[in-house]
Design a protein around this nucleic acid. Structure first.
Lengths: 115, 115
DNA sequence: ACACGCTTGCCTACAATGTCTGCATCGGGA
DNA sequence: TCCCGATGCAGACATTGTAGGCAAGCGTGT
């Protein structure tokens, strides 16, 4: 069942949504996980990914289906996720908020050396 | 007491951190609140702002002091917040993650009409 | 000096999200 | 068949998000 209020996205939810988008709407759970770990500095446990994927589905921001041939070397059939138009809208809004907030302080944030 | 692990920033924490930065490190609690409400689509209660400000202090990402002349028409003395170097680093890292994740799908996210 | 009202700060409680560990399931190969 | 690797998922708990209400100061008017 979908929840109507569609509250604001959490930080990880936004990353997951973008991961699915960037994987061309054919993302499996572990693909999402790998994508986030590859593109960001965060470490993602498998469980964390699936729980978030599930919650995004409850909100109606994602859909999924279990249509997949098994992987090369064994493995359970994969579930594939797709971003809905509501999902795109939510992601765009969250990112818009971030961008508007950042505008003007890029310089301050740029000169930061990583540890 | 500061917490060492300095976990990843939540979405609202990041907004608050940026608000203080953009207010030139002389931000009061309600100024932060007003700034976020002005620049984003989110509504911020006073309590939410202060709780987050407090937590960011515990993490060592912000410092504060109560040095302020009273406002124009009455009011309690204001507390002013300042972002630490650790805070700048944390914000830069979170934003970096977001930007890297977004790169390549800007087009998809751009063509989204607000409701 | 006193009461008043305004603004800011903060505390408390609760909802939502983030995160991990462990286990079940499915398919392939030995 | 039996094991193995990979995926999905469930349960539990930590962290963060959010609101409402109460108290503290400070000016103003009497």
């Amino acid at each position: 069942m979908q929840r109507v209020p569609a509250a604001t996205l959490g930080d990880f939810e936004l990353l997951v949504l973008m991961a699915v988008l960037r994987l061309d709407n054919e993302a499996s759970g572990s693909a999402v996980r790998d994508e986030i770990e590859a593109r960001t500095t965060r470490r993602v446990s498998r469980g964390a990914a699936y729980v978030t994927l599930d919650r995004l589905q409850d909100k109606g921001l994602l859909t999924s289906r279990v249509v997949d041939a098994p992987a090369e070397a064994g493995g359970r059939p994969r579930r594939r996720y797709r971003v809905t138009s509501a999902g795109r809208k939510a992601a765009a809004q969250s990112l818009g908020d971030l961008v508007r907030m950042r505008s003007g302080i890029e310089r301050i944030l740029a000169g930061v050396k990583p540890s």
